[in-house]
Design a protein around this nucleic acid. Structure first.
Lengths: 202, 202
DNA sequence: TCCTTTACCGAACGATCGGTCAGATAGTCT
DNA sequence: AGACTATCTGACCGATCGTTCGGTAAAGGA
């Protein structure tokens, strides 16, 4: 309760807060790829030496763990929002889709790293398991929307889920915060495309 | 013309044809990731020593170049098929989408590697440029379909293209040759979802 | 001022990286 | 059989990997 309101700062002040440091780290992970990023790359990106950098972090994999955990937490937080819990399944689905795009845009580098993990290390396998759990929740939502008669029933629900959220995840490949579209416009267009299709109405 | 019908085989016979060797290589690239794959990993996957392996290939990057080139060639081949050239734009678009899924399934590991390149090396930058050119061709096709009045005009064409082919590319994340769906069923469902939306008709 | 605490750094560790080389091996051709 | 040729191998190279350690610099508390 009172552990983190310790404002008495002793010793030499740090150049980075843990979160600021992670922001630098994740940006390097994005541009070079996790495996191709050396600890020296990360240290130089912060302006520290490698040994100084190790004073703040325990190792490379722990950094990956923190990055993917932040992305996973942000995505799961969408599922417990009131609009994701109450109401017709099709409306909950629309909300989850829209908010997933928002989270993806707001936490772009973190979610991007999450979407690229392959399962070589323990941290990556944990992330993959969380992603699978997330997909299961989404799939259940799609099935509920079909059962309630609001979503077409002529397509396999699992396949439908994968295609829909494949489109959502694909946004991470090209979305840029200062790009042509803001996050809400992307979410709007995606929802309209997904729900009504690209064929001209009429 | 007569260069490759030289059937006179001299010297010790090889255990792999170049294509067989590339199949092994790309499977390791997929499971470990390109950067995390060492030349010794590749050699051991073929049953050769690292030095024997180097007798057949010039280096790691050349392997990546061959892998992504195969994927790029397969995708561009779709664009010159008759059904991609003749007829209404909306029909050409549907054909390109459907065949892209086919190619993605048929050349799954190669296309998967292509979709993961980040531009750190010359080979990767070449692949990214080719992908951008491919995207430009797709975007032109979408715009033509809008101009011909067959695709809704209330969404930005560039955004529409990225969302649509984001869904297509996402197939590479979960499709497995011996999985629940065959390639043509995935393509059918994807086309129906993309063109008509997931809302229940009526 | 001196003490404690935290931040930072240079140098080095063993391991592994991509790549090389001189030669051994196992086939075909004459 | 012997020459020839492509295939394969163990040993090794310099560079870089993630990580550690002894020690120094800079701040607040006494």
């Amino acid at each position: 309760m009172d552990g983190d309101v310790n404002l008495a700062k002793r010793g030499r002040p740090a150049r980075y807060t843990p979160d600021e440091l992670l922001d630098v780290v994740v940006s390097v992970f994005i541009s070079r790829g996790y495996d191709a990023t050396s600890m020296d790359d990360l240290a130089r990106a912060t302006g520290l030496t490698k040994s100084s950098f190790y004073h703040h972090v325990s190792g490379k994999e722990e950094l990956l763990r923190r990055v993917v955990a932040r992305a996973v937490d942000a995505l799961f937080a969408v599922l417990v929002e009131p609009e994701s819990v109450d109401g017709r399944a099709v409306d909950r689905l629309e909300h989850v889709v829209r908010r997933s795009v928002d989270v993806l845009a707001a936490e772009l580098p973190y979610v991007t790293v999450l979407l690229r993990v392959r399962g070589n290390t323990a941290a990556e396998r944990w992330a993959l398991n969380r992603r699978r759990e997330f997909d299961r929740r989404l799939s259940a939502l799609v099935r509920a929307a079909i059962d309630e008669g609001d979503v077409r029933a002529d397509l396999d629900p699992a396949l439908l889920t994968r295609l829909l959220f494949g489109m959502v995840n694909g946004v991470a490949e090209w979305y840029r915060p200062n790009g042509a579209h803001r996050s809400s416009a992307v979410a709007d267009s995606l929802v309209r495309l997904a729900f009504d299709g690209l064929r001209r109405p009429g």
